[in-house]
Nucleic acid binder design. Structure first.
Lengths: 340, 340
DNA sequence: CCTTGGCACTCGTCGAGCGCGAGTGCCAAC
DNA sequence: GTTGGCACTCGCGCTCGACGAGTGCCAAGG
């Protein structure tokens, strides 16, 4: 089929361009790939592909370069995720198994991913909102100051100092503590608000203001900005593609400094193992229109508690990158399962 | 004095070069500064300055550029820290006063500093080792798991889950907790090791293994890698000097990804308000030989509990940068004082 | 209808050659 | 110690032309 060969040509163009970073011409294409036809035929195909908007020429009489759409077709129809070799998987495992706590797991994972892909890696901390309460603790640390500690089943620990305004007796703190424990232990964080909504009523009128303050802080801890944390690694790898999109590095760095942007990048998927690939302009984030973002959800079992991924140039090795992202996500998910 | 004029020439060269980023010649020098002598005289002075190694020419028949040594002399003898204007100080104050907790203070400060200087800013979290214990807490969160929480007077909170191996009764935890509180509250972190060294002996033989495990974890928390945290902002500003030292951005980014390197950069000074300026090759860190690092200690009152600073190109505005660094350090110190 | 070899054409890259001008060093005069 | 003059250096930017990779089109062949 003619149509089939055209797609084969597109695949060859993407592969060559990713490998060489140079526009690829019809001659070199037939030389490097066994397409079984002459350069002239390829040229016709190329003209058709250009017509369809899948490839473009930087300038007349130069080879062709894939467009964002071209990469899109490549990723969707022409490539498959490249699985890691056994050796690579062993390396990942042994590297991540040494982690001692959640911070350590996150840090090691994101660095590993940056190293594997030679791109900028992102990892989101397990989202509080999607995990369960393992323990909650109230500690008096002053006359009208209480330390609120929340431990999630993902190992994440959040703390917060609450200024209660009025003094709370140790007895009151103790009673509030056991009441909270009884109400929320094992519950999903997202349900905490409902579970504690009537707790204040169960205390004496004089105690309610202080109790309410603590509860408000608890809900804030669950919901607020602290809820989402993102860790970054491999920004040095940006320098490598500086040659390619000179002057574009700055907006990328700027975008990467904004937590909110990073969170948007990491996406919203609820299913593990389904990779999301956003290519070039598909990316809504300003300043990242020359980059592609590959992300995936991770978590214990099939639950998605957070996301991780990489940001790289649109001309990246998609199969390899996707393989690395998926492999790391699976390992992190496994570690979270074990810790549970 | 001839010697005086030479230094004036050096100052003028540094100022012009910092402003224009172009080698400065004798003619433009007399035009832009009122030195009261002719270009020829300046040329003689320049020859002398070059002899001394304070300036250099990129190539024959180009203007002069300050050397690292030249900047050194400029910083030491020819410039003074530029104080912030009243408006700037107000802006700093209002920007930092909105912070709700230590993380917030750190994040706001480092971003502010990056913005003020248009360089890469660093801030070290208040060092545990130099602060005092406000409170310590033990919380049972499972049969043989204890959560250890340490609150420093700087507002910093460290937590750690301890696997005790054997079960600890609530009673035992309570006794250990009060014993620890009594021993270390208000003490300097650095003295904690001494203060708790004999605590284990005060428990029954059967309780000692668990107690020892908890104590070991406590000491580890005080001493270990978690002790030092550094936050970074403004890496996007690196792109701006990419034009100047192309190809040098990568090693800089690499250096900035290493916590250990950052800590070394931030230095060891024990006195607040004394700015440290390391210029170009004075920097021992590999990859940062084209950058200058301006740091200062900060803390409540005159105590130094940590450091902050910036990394930028050697041709930076030293007086301005030093002013910004010092101003931010003072504000952060004040905030810490208030929180105490 | 698809494929192919041929061919004219486009256009970016590279290197050589050249003039300009900023800037220097030196020197003789003050 | 300072100054003006002057010859000299040398990087930068420009033009020009040769080169070559790559294209589009066309007519011939399967």
């Amino acid at each position: 089929m003619v149509e089939d060969r055209r797609l084969a040509v597109l695949r060859a163009i993407v592969e060559d361009y990713v490998a060489t970073h140079e526009p690829v011409g019809s001659r070199s294409l037939v030389e490097r790939h066994s397409l079984g036809v002459s350069p002239a035929t390829i040229r016709n195909d190329m003209a058709a592909l250009e017509e369809e908007g899948l490839i473009a020429q930087p300038h007349t009489s130069a080879g062709r370069v894939p467009t964002d759409q071209g990469y899109r077709v490549f990723v969707d129809k022409l490539s498959q995720v490249k699985p890691m070799s056994a050796a690579e998987r062993r390396a990942i495992g042994s590297f991540l198994d040494g982690a001692v706590d959640l911070d350590d797991v996150m840090q090691r994972s994101v660095r590993l991913l940056a190293q594997l892909t030679r791109q900028v890696a992102l990892i989101q901390y397990p989202s509080l909102i999607r995990s369960h309460v393992r323990h909650i603790e109230l500690v008096s640390i002053g006359p009208s100051r209480v330390l609120l500690v929340l431990i999630a089943d993902t190992g994440r620990v959040e703390q917060r100092v609450v200024e209660t305004g009025v003094a709370m007796s140790d007895d009151l703190i103790g009673r509030l503590r056991s009441r909270l424990l009884e109400r929320v232990t094992g519950q999903r964080l997202v349900d905490v608000a409902d579970r504690v909504s009537d707790v204040a009523e169960q205390f004496g009128l004089d105690e309610r203001p202080a109790v309410a303050t603590v509860l408000a802080s608890l809900l804030e801890t669950v919901v607020e900005r602290h809820e989402e944390r993102v860790m970054l690694a491999g920004t040095a790898n940006l320098a490598a593609f500086g040659e390619d999109f000179t002057g574009t590095v700055r907006p990328v760095l700027e975008a990467l400094e904004e937590q909110m942007v990073l969170l948007r990048l990491l996406g919203e998927s609820r299913t593990t193992d389904v990779l999301s690939v956003r290519i070039g302009h598909e990316n809504e984030v300003e300043g990242l229109s020359a980059t592609s973002v590959v992300t995936v959800g991770y978590g214990p079992g099939d639950d998605v508690v957070a996301h991780l991924g990489v940001v790289g140039p649109t001309r990246m090795d998609y199969p390899g990158t996707m393989g690395s992202v998926r492999a790391v996500a699976r390992y992190v998910g496994r570690i979270l399962t074990e810790q549970q």
